[in-house]
Structures are given as C-alpha cells and as structure tokens.
Simulated assay, not measured.
Amino acid sequence: MRRWGYHYNQSVHALNSIAHYLRLGEADANDALDALETVRGRIHELDGGVRALRKEMHAMTDKIIVER
C-alpha cells in the first residue's frame, strides 16, 4: 500500500511541476499536454493496481472497501 501512496504522491508532484512551469512561462501548452498525458497514463496504471489490491483485501477480510 505504501508503494501505491508513493506513486500517487509522485503523480501529484508532477502535476504541480507542470503548473509551476506554466506559471513561469517556461512551458507552453504542448509541453503541458505531453506531460499531462504521461501523468494520466501512470495514474491509470496505478488505479488498476489499487483495484486489484482492494479485491485482494476484500477476499482476505470479507469486508467491502468502498471506492471513492
């Protein structure tokens, strides 16, 4: 679970970096879109892992873990 949290944190950090460089005028819209697509893909991969982890936890505990 720590690994998933770490990767989500890194994704948020990447989004903040994109916003920072846009504010400074050191990146243009195309740069931002490319970076956003990369972050989106990584978050999508993480979501698959999180869903699998929830399923495993449910199987082990017989308790439903609510998705937000």
Score class of each variant (00 low, 15 high):
Ala35Glu: 04
Arg2Phe: 13
Arg3Ser: 10
Ala19Leu: 07
Glu45Phe: 08
His58Leu: 04
Glu26Met: 13
His20Phe: 07
Gly49Asp: 12
Gly5Lys: 14
Leu53Gly: 02
Gly25Leu: 08
Tyr6Cys: 05
His20Asp: 02
Arg68Lys: 07
Met1Glu: 14
Val39Trp: 08
His20Trp: 05
Ile65His: 04
Glu37Ile: 06
Glu45Ser: 10
Asp62Trp: 06
Asp34Ser: 10
Arg51Leu: 05
Ala59Ile: 08
Ala27Gln: 01
Gly5Asn: 15
Gln10Ile: 02
Val66Thr: 05
Asn30Leu: 09
Glu45Thr: 03
Asp47Ala: 13
Asp31Lys: 09
Glu37Asp: 09
Arg3Ile: 12
Arg51Thr: 07
Lys55Glu: 07
Ala59Gly: 01
Leu33Ile: 10
Asp62Phe: 09
Gly49Met: 10
Leu22Phe: 04
Tyr21Arg: 08
Met1Pro: 14
Met1Ile: 11
Glu67Arg: 03
Glu37Leu: 06
Glu26Ile: 03
Ala32Ser: 08
Thr61Gln: 07
Arg68Gly: 04
Gly25Asp: 05
Asp31Leu: 08
His44Ala: 12
Glu45Arg: 09
Glu56Ile: 14
Asn16Asp: 05
Arg40Asp: 10
Gly48Arg: 06
Arg51Cys: 00
Glu67Lys: 02
Asp31His: 15
Ser11Glu: 12
Leu33Phe: 08
Ile43Cys: 11
Ile43Thr: 07
Glu45Tyr: 08
Arg68Gln: 09
Ala27Val: 00
Glu26Pro: 01
Asn30Gln: 12
Gly48Phe: 01
Ala52Met: 09
Ala32Met: 07
Asp47Glu: 11
His58Ile: 01
His20Pro: 00
Ala14Glu: 15
Asp47Trp: 09
Arg54Asp: 02
Arg68Glu: 09
Arg23Pro: 00
Glu67His: 01
Met57Arg: 02
Ile43Phe: 08
Leu15Asn: 07
Glu67Asp: 08
Arg40Glu: 12
Ser11Trp: 05
Gly48Glu: 03
Gly25Ser: 04
Tyr21Asn: 05
His58Ser: 06
Asp28Arg: 04
Val66Ala: 05
Asp47Arg: 15
His20Tyr: 11
Gly25Thr: 06
Leu46Trp: 03
Arg40Lys: 15
Tyr6Asp: 14
Gly5Asp: 11
Arg51Gly: 01
Arg3Ala: 13
Ile65Thr: 07
Gln10Pro: 00
Asp62Thr: 02
Ile65Tyr: 07
Asp28Val: 09
Ala19Asn: 08
Met57Ile: 01
Ala35Ile: 05
Leu36Phe: 05
Thr38Ala: 03
Glu45Ala: 11
Arg40Asn: 12
